[in-house]
Design a protein around this nucleic acid. Structure first.
Length: 794
RNA sequence: GGGUGAUUAGCUCAGUUGGCUAGAGCGCUUCGUUUACACCGAAGAUGUCGGGGGUUCGAGUCCCUCAUCACCCACCA
């Protein structure tokens, strides 16, 4: 492996010169495959599948923390699997592809569902390598040989099975209910796929004869089936049971009493439109009101007076307002800011419509999820998301799982098209033959709806592991690490499906990260112009620099800011490591080995003490998902302790084996964070032929003396001062400064120990630590005074 | 209307269960080009830890309250 000699190490580290070679090296060594000591606890992370059609974006950058955890586990010798996959990303990809079709002047309807599906499938398969290439370039050490796609046959079969099982368990039903309908993509969506935006609008007060109602949606008056007032509202009490009249069509409707109506909003009287409003739908159910539909799936008016038919909602609204005005029925209008529901992806305004959809009963299924989280069977990092997840799980309604999108996993159902009263209205099956056998030729049709993407990706952990044959060994997995904004959409669903299907939680830990933003806290996006392609950044500063910038100074659950300056700083850090390596490798002779290192000088004891402390601290930090803390510890160890102090010192009296040990250890510690530069250096050391990626994590092997280490600490001051051209005076000043500090310490500790309440209340350990500090200060003062005296006399 | 997070040096942020004299990077000041590194080294300055109360021997850390910002949830017609 040592193909290059030390002389070839350039003065600065040039990442793009080495990274491709290192990637190739890992590939050839099949270093990302599962190996390790089978007696050790397996470690597994299922990668959140990126959109197969997408490219690396800000959200994927945080996968770095997964890679750190994975590389650490691998170096611990644990059987380690990071299982990658890609997502068909239903609506998202369909949306992109339809825009491509639009350029060809066709719509998906011109192609038909089957053709459309196969075209996208081909398109996505061709695109997929883009993102995978970028992931590899980031150094993500997932086992790419096991890559899964959400539309792989074995994955979809698992999804079909689950659907059938849920159906058999009476947890799935089909029903006509009001849903979030997007007229643009023409599909229903679940509540959590909807975002709300505050928008300016107008509140219209309309004369309904016996009373005045207030609404923001005057165009829906044709679909009113009642007017509701609060039964405790004195103003309207006497009107309950009487009728009001819808203007323009002069249709009488009942005035009903319902607690849901707010006194203070508008006029206190509400027009009830069960067909086009979620609340009104509920009120309608309570009072058995008619559900009238006047808006079709494309968002156009139907079942209305001729002059409005075929208009869009917005057009109809204008026209209705005008007509009301002319009829003298518009009492007043006032500006209002209210929240408008939008589809996440298309940003289209949601039109609540009554349609027939598939629903999943959630509340029973959520119960074991809630108790698993309550009992900390699944731990959250940071912990606050435990509470948030529980809050959601307890309040969740039934889940609309059917989509009228074509790009997705089809719902395995066949419907009866005959009038045969002996046959069920539908059967759950993936086999057309079964439908034919049951209904008879020509008496059935296949469902065209597809599943909500999250219905299939919610099953991702066990579906993938079953498919790769790793289920037995790696399920439940160790950790799920993903973006905090899909905690609800995805993480809680995976737990729910996991517990339902396998009886076990899918993962033991949940690590959530926030958004990666620019230095101003703005979301990184191409449209905002603050998103430089990460591949450009890495070409300039190195992948390791980007990885370090993403792992240090960013804490779990919170947004993280990155900037060019920050990345540059870590580029410098990588270069520091590079030059430490150059120094060590040039200095130590052939035959030097880290394992032969012995502790000779106080400096040796000191540096090993620092290293030992760092090893245990870094290990502990990583195990507790505190990657930032771990990274900082390594940074300080390499730069402050090893480079600035120990290396400088060793220029006078080198301990070669120990120098090698320092480098060797810091490379191991740093590898999970900066895999490329560390592996590059590793390949150039003369004491090993292995690959760092599959090397063992470092262990504490030396027992340095604390007293000797302290000796060096005092020495540092004089060594450095001796190097300066100013002589005794400077040094005396420094020593005096130190002396003052120690004297202050003496006073402080003395006062503390004289404090009665401190002595009686503070725990033993704290008191003895304080005493130690006092004694330390005392002896230091004597020593310093002696030194100063000595220097002053020369 | 409910909830969560943030508020610490000029800037960007760390600070695990309360316990050394509150830290880092960048920036700034002064000095230095000694063959690992100017993508560098040495020395240095800068903080009533958002305001106000409280608990405690001890609070950046716990409790109450107020303020500002960000995000999330909810059925504001």
């Amino acid at each position: 492996m040592n193909s290059t000699t030390n002389n070839e190490l350039s003065k600065t580290y040039n990442p793009s010169q080495h990274e491709p070679r290192i990637s190739e090296l890992w590939d050839k060594a099949e270093a990302f495959r599962v190996a390790g000591d089978s007696s050790k606890e397996p470690f597994c992370i299922i990668m959140p599948p990126p959109n197969a059609n997408g490219s690396l974006h800000a959200g994927h950058l945080m996968y770095v923390v997964e890679d750190i955890a994975v590389r650490y586990a691998r170096m611990q010798g644990r059987p380690t699997l990071w299982l990658p996959g890609t997502d068909h990303a239903g609506i998202e990809t369909q949306f992109v592809y339809e825009q491509l079709l639009a350029k060809r002047n066709i719509t998906r309807h011109d192609l038909g569902q089957e053709k459309f599906y196969s075209e996208i499938h081909k398109f996505v398969s061709g695109q997929q390598h883009n993102i995978l290439q970028q992931f590899r370039a980031m150094g993500f050490s997932a086992d790419w040989s096991k890559l899964k796609f959400t539309l792989d046959d074995d994955i979809t079969n698992t999804v079909y099975d689950t659907f059938k099982q849920l159906h058999d368990d009476n947890l799935i039903y089909r029903g006509n209910r009001i849903v979030n309908w997007d007229p643009v993509t023409q599909s229903a969506y679940a509540d959590i796929e909807i975002t709300h935006e505050q928008r300016k609008g107008e509140l219209y007060y309309i004369d309904y004869g016996s009373l005045t109602i207030a609404t923001t949606r005057p165009e829906t008056i044709f679909a009113d089936s009642a007017v509701a007032v609060n039964p405790n509202d004195d103003r309207y009490l006497s009107l309950i049971g009487k009728t009001a009249t819808i203007p323009l069509i002069n249709k009488p409707v009942a005035i009903i009493g319902d607690e849901q109506v707010e006194f203070s909003f508008g006029s206190g009287a509400l027009k009830v439109t069960p067909g086009h409003d979620k609340n009104d739908f509920e009120i309608g159910l309570r009072h058995n009101l008619a559900q009238i539909t006047i808006i079709d799936l494309a968002g156009r008016m139907i079942n209305v007076p001729a002059e409005y038919a075929g208009l869009t909602v917005i057009e109809a609204r204008k026209k209705v307002i005008l007509a009301l005005e002319q009829a003298g029925k518009l009492v007043k209008r006032e500006p209002i800011v209210h929240s408008v529901a939008l589809q996440d992806r298309s940003k289209a305004v949601i039109e609540p419509l009554i349609t027939e959809q598939w629903f999943m009963k959630i509340s029973e299924l959520n119960k074991p999820v809630i108790s698993a989280i309550e009992n900390d069977e699944i731990k959250f990092y940071p912990n606050r998301f435990k509470k948030i997840a529980l809050e959601w799980l307890r309040n969740e309604h039934d889940w609309c799982i059917s989509r009228q999108i074509w790009w997705g996993v089809g719902i395995p159902v066949f419907y009866k098209t005959s009038n045969d009263p002996d046959k069920k209205p539908y059967i759950v099956s993936t086999s057309e033959q079964e439908a034919k056998d049951y209904y008879g030729e020509g008496s059935y049709r296949a469902e065209t709806d597809t599943f909500d993407t999250w219905f299939s990706s919610g099953q991702w952990p066990y579906a993938t592991l079953l498919s790769t044959g790793d289920f037995k060994r790696f399920y439940p997995t160790t950790t799920m690490a993903t973006a905090r904004d899909i905690l609800h959409k995805w993480v809680t669903r995976m737990i729910m499906f996991g517990l339902y299907k396998t009886g076990e939680i899918p993962f033991k830990n949940v690590y959530l990260w926030g958004m990666v933003t620019d230095e101003k806290g703005q979301k990184l996006s191409k449209s905002k112009g603050n998103y430089d392609d990460p591949m450009q950044i890495t070409a300039k500063y190195g992948t390791d620099a980007l990885r370090l910038a993403l792992s240090i100074g960013i804490t779990p659950g919170n947004d993280g800011k990155i900037s060019e300056e920050k990345i540059q700083g870590y580029r410098n850090f990588c270069n520091k490591l590079w030059n430490v390596a150059r120094f060590v490798l040039a200095k130590v002779p052939e035959g030097t080995t880290p394992l032969k290192a012995e502790l000779l000088s106080p400096a040796d004891h000191w540096v090993v003490l620092r290293i030992n402390t760092a090893i245990s601290s870094v290990s502990k930090s990583i195990e507790n998902y505190r990657f930032s803390e771990a990274g900082q510890t390594i940074y300080a160890l390499l730069w402050d302790d090893i480079a600035d102090k120990y290396l400088e010192h060793s220029k006078q009296s080198p301990n070669n084996h120990l120098l090698a040990y320092c480098l060797d250890t810091v490379l191991r510690l740093m590898h999970p964070f900066a895999p490329f530069v560390t592996e590059t250096i590793w390949q150039n050391t003369m004491w090993t032929n292995s690959n760092l990626i599959t090397e063992q994590w470092t262990n504490i092997i030396h027992k340095p003396s604390t007293a000797k280490a302290k000796e060096f600490e005092l020495e540092i001051i004089s060594v450095i001062s001796a190097g300066q051209k100013d002589s005794n005076k400077v040094e005396i000043l420094k020593l005096q400064k130190e002396l003052t500090a120690k004297q202050n310490q003496l006073k402080l500790s003395g006062a503390k120990l004289a404090n009665k309440s401190f002595m009686s209340r503070a725990p033993e350990a704290v008191i003895s630590a304080e005493k130690g500090r006092l004694a330390g200060a005392e002896s230091a003062i004597m020593e310093l005074e002696g030194k100063i005296e000595k220097l002053a006399s020369t």
